[in-house]
């Protein structure tokens, strides 16, 4: 089926919600996020009750383990990637596919940077003996931060697929909702991270 070709003048204001499928995707990604809120809440709640719990004589605690500079850099990377995806959506409104692709690519790069630091952090912890099976605390920590990391990976694969698929063919009412949904999902990853850096790292350092 051929797609309608648009120009900046004919591109609708809410292109992501111009078709019935677009409306469904818009509502659908939000409803999915609602269930993800409860998923993360369950892992968070478990982490809170297992924080610093381990076998007798466990040497690792949140205070001895976490380093704020690393958490700060990761936070800045992810927060900035949230802004860059807003830029991508701004260019989508103006029917500028180049802008969309460029800013989405920057988002992916920032996300990769975040992911690299997280892998480094995990590797470091495992290296000093704080492995996944070391204690209840370690299991809960890796599961919580790892679940977020998994969401980041899924987001990166998703956005990369969108970039590869749509870089050549430009924007239309079929792929606009896809870009929009991916960006909403990416913001949600950032929302979760806000709680992770506050509750896990900052409150962890406080003890």
């Amino acid at each position: 089926m051929e797609e309608t070709k648009f120009t900046p003048q004919t591109w609708p204001n809410h292109a992501e919600q111009a078709t019935a499928e677009g409306k469904n995707k818009f509502v659908g990604i939000w409803i999915f996020i609602c269930s993800d809120i409860v998923l993360f809440a369950s892992v968070f709640a478990t982490y809170l009750s297992l924080r610093n719990k381990g076998p007798a004589g466990m040497e690792f605690t949140t205070q001895s383990l976490f380093e704020l500079p690393l958490a700060f850099v990761m936070t800045m990377l992810l927060l900035t990637s949230s802004l860059t995806s807003v830029y991508a959506m701004y260019h989508m409104k103006n029917y500028n596919i180049k802008g969309v692709i460029t800013w989405m690519a920057i988002t992916v790069l920032l996300g990769l940077g975040f992911l690299g630091l997280e892998i480094y952090e995990f590797y470091h912890y495992v290296h000093i003996g704080f492995g996944y099976t070391q204690s209840a605390f370690s299991s809960a920590f890796f599961t919580l931060v790892g679940t977020h990391g998994l969401h980041v990976i899924i987001g990166l694969v998703w956005i990369t697929c969108l970039i590869v698929r749509n870089a050549k063919r430009g924007l239309n009412l079929y792929n606009a909702p896809k870009f929009y949904a991916a960006s909403i999902y990416w913001h949600f990853i950032d929302v979760v991270w806000v709680f992770i850096f506050t509750v896990v790292y900052l409150m962890g350092v406080l003890g």
Binding site: E3, T4, T7, T10, P12, T19, A20, L173
Partner: peptide, 11 residues
């Protein structure tokens, strides 16, 4: 439902 949305040029 459908993809044939009205294409309208803005002023």
């Amino acid at each position: 439902m459908g993809h044939h949305t009205e294409v309208q040029a803005k002023t």
